[in-house]
């Protein structure tokens, strides 16, 4: 695994995504996720964050989207055309925005459903135990129908379910969505533990830039389908634009936005 440190686990080069053959959602995104790192992908609504994740996990196909240009390399392999199932086998897993638990199944069944087919009973039990040690709250509710879990518990279940696939790279789409600040902190600290203890690389998509930048080492800022900024988390937190428009410094007014738009064009 000495070569892995030199080459990032995941790298996107000029990826372009088109929905329904017409609308361009992402135009030329490049980013790297080095093995074992926590990376954030930040941006406003509709900037193309989710689309970028879907292009990596292969779930674009379900949304009638297509990668029309660029390369997605994972562990040295070009994965552009692989099915979502094959990408999960390689160790790429995406936790969908809005949790998407199997609502009619119990907590435990949700986790069992995500077990790879070839996993033995014993392996499955140890994988379940491991998932429950990260999320003790879920262990208490293992036989509850997951549709009746609270929003925070469902988010935990969605992450635990992704872990059952034995990933090398975990992608999270807005895990803080609709959660209280306290729950967000709890979930983010679990994500950090998963990253440290399991060595799983994490690509985190967030609108909550404040919480995300505390967690990750590097971040990318994406706007209108393009990466407009890439830096260390500390540098991004100190960037005045990020502070004003994503961390929510002072009140935003129209003139500021215009001024910012001008500057952004210059940045790109």
């Amino acid at each position: 695994m000495t070569t892995a440190s030199a080459e990032p686990l995941l790298s996107l080069r000029n990826v372009e995504v088109v929905y329904d053959n017409v609308s361009l959602a992402v135009s030329g995104v490049s980013l790297d996720v080095p093995e074992g790192q926590l990376i954030a992908l930040l941006g406003a609504n509709g900037a193309g964050k989710s689309t970028t994740l879907r292009s990596i996990s292969g779930l674009l196909q379900a949304a009638r989207g297509k990668v029309t240009r660029g390369e997605i390399r994972y562990a040295g392999q070009l994965v552009n055309t692989l099915s979502p199932q094959d990408r999960v086998k390689l160790g790429i897993v995406q936790v969908l925005e809005g949790r998407h638990v199997f609502e009619q199944l119990t907590t435990n069944e949700n986790l069992e459903a995500a077990c790879p087919v070839e996993m033995s009973r014993a392996e499955m039990r140890s994988a379940l135990d491991r998932a429950y040690t990260f999320f003790p709250r879920l262990a208490e509710r293992r036989n509850a129908t997951s549709g009746y879990l609270s929003g925070g518990e469902q988010q935990m279940l969605a992450i635990a379910r992704a872990l059952m696939t034995r990933p090398r790279m975990l992608m999270l789409d807005e895990p803080s969505l609709g959660l209280s600040p306290m729950l967000t902190t709890e979930i983010f600290s679990i994500i950090r533990r998963i990253n440290r203890e399991e060595g799983i690389s994490v690509l985190l998509v967030e609108q909550n830039a404040f919480a995300a930048l505390d967690l990750v080492s590097h971040g990318y800022l994406i706007e209108s389908g393009r990466v407009v900024m890439h830096d260390t988390a500390t540098a991004m937190k100190n960037n005045p634009d990020i502070q004003e428009f994503y961390l929510g410094g002072h009140g935003v007014n129209f003139r500021d936005i215009k001024h910012y738009r001008r500057r952004k064009r210059w940045l790109t």
Binding site: R87, V88, V93, L105, E109, C115, M124, T165
Partner: peptide
């Protein structure tokens, strides 16, 4: 387990794809 996967598919097929269920 096979049956659970089938129920998962009927419940949410995008989520099924996301965790590698065929």
């Amino acid at each position: 387990r096979r049956g659970i996967r089938l129920r998962a598919i009927s419940n949410d097929y995008v989520a099924s794809w996301s965790v590698g269920i065929g």
